[in-house]
Design a binder for these strands. Structure first.
Lengths: 118, 118
DNA sequence: ATTATCCTCAACCAGATGGTTGAGGATAAA
DNA sequence: TTTATCCTCAACCATCTGGTTGAGGATAAT
């Protein structure tokens, strides 16, 4: 399976990681900067970053001493595509269902369908 | 934190569950029907359904013997909202950054900025 | 040259996750 | 009534996950 989607969903399933992503939309940041607001060790944040990195959500270019973290927002589209595809499919189905129900209702009440009366 | 998002992302981080969701956009289905295509026990699928259910992605109304599973597509919007918010924020930032870089380039090359020449 | 800072790796731990098998309760069919 | 079907619960297992602490390598600052 070419499953590039699972790691992305998994990465964003953690609130700390979602928050980090949110902050990275404002500006790149070093590991230390990213770690500051949270009540966990720098090592824990380093691990979180590895998860985001392997999901393709984030890249790092070692820059001497520090390694600034950069958000790769294109991956968002992968998810949006998936979600939208099935959301629309579901909606289409509901529309069909509504039509069928309306039809049934019209028939049992002896009324003409809207199409016919139009 | 009012974290209703984490369970949704977590639920969709599994390919089997994503596939079940995809299939449920076509039609409601019983647990047995859902389980058929996969090479795992019915109990495993039952567990997957509990995950989807607790994420709010799916509901079940016991109907005598069987309990048909129904997709609740509204939850999709929660995710889409989150993703779109930060995607747009990231894009806005890139636009700002591009503008700054263009400005710097113009200055070092002694050219006027596009705004001035327009 | 020494010291401090930034970061990662390794080992460990508790709890979650995804799978299994076995047992059993309710409903439907014989 | 008996039997079959659909589904869930419980116990178990291996692996993954998110956290910790400790050690250490590179780079930067004194």
């Amino acid at each position: 399976m070419n499953d590039s989607l699972s790691p992305v969903f998994a990465a964003l399933a953690d609130p700390t990681r979602r928050d980090m992503v949110a902050r990275l939309t404002e500006a790149d940041a070093t590991v230390g900067e990213l770690a500051k607001p949270y009540d966990v060790s720098v090592q824990a944040i380093s691990k979180h970053l590895k998860v985001l990195e392997q999901a393709g959500l984030v890249t790092r270019v070692a820059e001497g001493h520090r390694s600034p973290v950069h958000l790769e927002a294109e991956v968002f589209e992968l998810m949006t595509k998936w979600i939208e595809r099935y959301r629309q499919r579901a909606e289409a189905r509901y529309r069909r269902l509504d039509a069928v129900l309306a039809e049934m209702n019209d028939e049992t009440t002896g009324r003409r369908s809207r199409k016919e009366t139009a």
